[in-house]
Amino acid sequence: MPRTMLLDTASLYFRAFYGVPDSVKAADGTSVNALRGLLDIITKLVTLYQPDTVIACWDDDWRPQWRVDLIPTYKTHRVVTEVAGGADVEEVPDPLQTQIPIIRDMLTSLNIPIVGHADYEADDIVATLATLADRHVDIVTGDRDLFQLVDDSRDVRVIYTARGMSNLEIVTDDVVQGKYGVRADQYADFATMRGDASDGLPGVPGVGEKTAATLLQNHGDLHAIRVAAAEGTGMSAGVAKKIVAAAEYLDVAPTVVRVAQDVNVTLPPAPLSPLSSDEAQRAAALADQWAYTSAWERFAAAIALRG
């Protein structure tokens, strides 16, 4: 069965930006370290995992208002400027911000489709496309939130980049179970209770990973845990009190934590294959302009080998 690779693109270009020296510049002095690094990352992924399709999932809205309305602290620490109309600006280093439009041009030149949707994050695009796919799916991300999509029965797995491109980890159901003591389909409830400071999610005070995992092992899901806590059964009185006290948070947090799987996007038919002569010429010209010719040649060779 063919394999689709879904890129959590921002996760990867941030990794490239911080992993490649900022001394890498184009002739006009523009930093292109994220650009070049991202293309090398994609080339390595294509070489290692041999997808027949690669899709760049995009943050058209990195902090959707509907999530903020539910939990106002959601990603607050990443906001650097409030602009007219109420939109928030994410903290992105200027040399990276300059490269983002060029990254989009580069991906387009390589026939790698970019999929995003207003009011949704890349995670939601990944989730929707993974749900739509009737094929094997590799999700490439450094964000453990996407562990909730792992599904061995459909061969949906995560290629986890948090430890670097030299230490990629294939995350399957067994890996999630081994790391956290919960099934992948329980991971969103687990993350809701645990919280995540990096996303501004407070979690249930006093309920850490171990307690959250034990509760899910004993009760199955968050709804059953809340019912048991209200009834004072199946857990200690202290834990039950913490769950009940967090009712306001638990009423809204699951909607924020769970990735949306019904965004109005379609799975693009984008087979990964060598570019036509004209396409290759245009891609090479862009690579020359932005000083990533060697990276482009490595990508082209990898595609030719698998094409």
Results as ranks from 00 to 15, higher is better:
residue 218 N to M: 01
residue 261 Q to W: 05
residue 248 E to P: 05
residue 244 V to K: 12
residue 271 P to D: 05
residue 241 K to F: 14
residue 215 L to Q: 08
residue 232 G to Y: 10
residue 261 Q to H: 11
residue 238 G to W: 12
residue 233 T to R: 09
residue 236 S to P: 00
residue 246 A to W: 10
residue 239 V to H: 08
residue 274 P to Y: 00
residue 269 P to Y: 10
residue 226 R to Q: 10
residue 229 A to T: 09
residue 219 H to C: 07
residue 258 R to A: 11
residue 261 Q to C: 09
residue 272 L to F: 01
residue 219 H to M: 04
residue 245 A to G: 13
residue 253 A to R: 09
residue 270 A to D: 01
residue 233 T to N: 04
residue 279 E to I: 05
residue 251 D to C: 07
residue 251 D to M: 12
residue 271 P to H: 07
residue 247 A to Y: 14
residue 278 D to P: 15
residue 229 A to D: 01
residue 218 N to S: 10
residue 268 P to M: 11
residue 281 Q to I: 07
residue 271 P to L: 04
residue 267 L to K: 08
residue 243 I to A: 06
residue 223 H to K: 13
residue 268 P to G: 00
residue 212 A to F: 04
residue 241 K to M: 09
residue 215 L to W: 07
residue 255 T to W: 09
residue 257 V to E: 04
residue 288 D to H: 11
residue 262 D to I: 01
residue 215 L to F: 03
residue 235 M to L: 12
residue 261 Q to F: 02
residue 236 S to N: 08
residue 228 A to I: 10
residue 227 V to Y: 00
residue 214 T to L: 12
residue 226 R to N: 03
residue 216 L to G: 03
residue 226 R to H: 02
residue 278 D to T: 15
residue 279 E to D: 06
residue 248 E to W: 02
residue 271 P to S: 09
residue 268 P to Y: 04
residue 286 L to I: 13
residue 258 R to Y: 02
residue 275 L to E: 02
residue 272 L to Y: 03
residue 255 T to I: 13
residue 246 A to I: 02
residue 234 G to M: 02
residue 264 N to T: 12
residue 277 S to Q: 12
residue 260 A to L: 09
residue 227 V to H: 00
residue 281 Q to C: 08
residue 235 M to A: 05
residue 231 E to G: 05
residue 215 L to C: 12
residue 256 V to G: 15
residue 235 M to F: 08
residue 245 A to Y: 11
residue 233 T to H: 03
residue 249 Y to A: 11
residue 210 K to F: 07
residue 214 T to I: 07
residue 214 T to P: 13
residue 254 P to N: 15
residue 270 A to V: 08
residue 270 A to P: 01
residue 232 G to R: 10
residue 255 T to C: 14
residue 247 A to D: 15
residue 232 G to Q: 06
residue 285 A to R: 07
residue 221 D to S: 03
residue 256 V to N: 10
residue 260 A to N: 14
residue 283 A to T: 10
residue 256 V to R: 06
residue 210 K to M: 03
residue 216 L to H: 09
residue 276 S to M: 02
residue 217 Q to Y: 04
residue 214 T to N: 14
residue 289 Q to D: 06
residue 208 G to L: 09
residue 274 P to D: 07
residue 226 R to S: 05
residue 216 L to I: 12
residue 277 S to H: 02
residue 235 M to P: 04
residue 285 A to Y: 01
residue 279 E to K: 07
residue 245 A to C: 01
residue 238 G to T: 08
residue 254 P to T: 10
residue 221 D to Y: 00
residue 230 A to Y: 08
residue 252 V to L: 12
residue 285 A to F: 04
residue 210 K to N: 10
residue 221 D to W: 00
residue 234 G to S: 07
residue 220 G to C: 02
residue 252 V to C: 10
residue 213 A to S: 11
residue 267 L to Y: 09
residue 238 G to C: 11
residue 275 L to N: 05
residue 254 P to D: 14
residue 218 N to K: 14
residue 270 A to F: 04
residue 216 L to R: 06
residue 253 A to M: 08
residue 261 Q to P: 08
residue 213 A to T: 15
residue 285 A to P: 00
residue 230 A to D: 15
residue 215 L to I: 12
residue 248 E to L: 08
residue 219 H to P: 03
residue 266 T to M: 08
residue 214 T to Y: 02
residue 238 G to A: 15
residue 276 S to Y: 00
residue 229 A to I: 12
residue 249 Y to E: 11
residue 236 S to Q: 06
residue 277 S to Y: 05
residue 222 L to D: 04
residue 275 L to A: 01
residue 208 G to A: 14
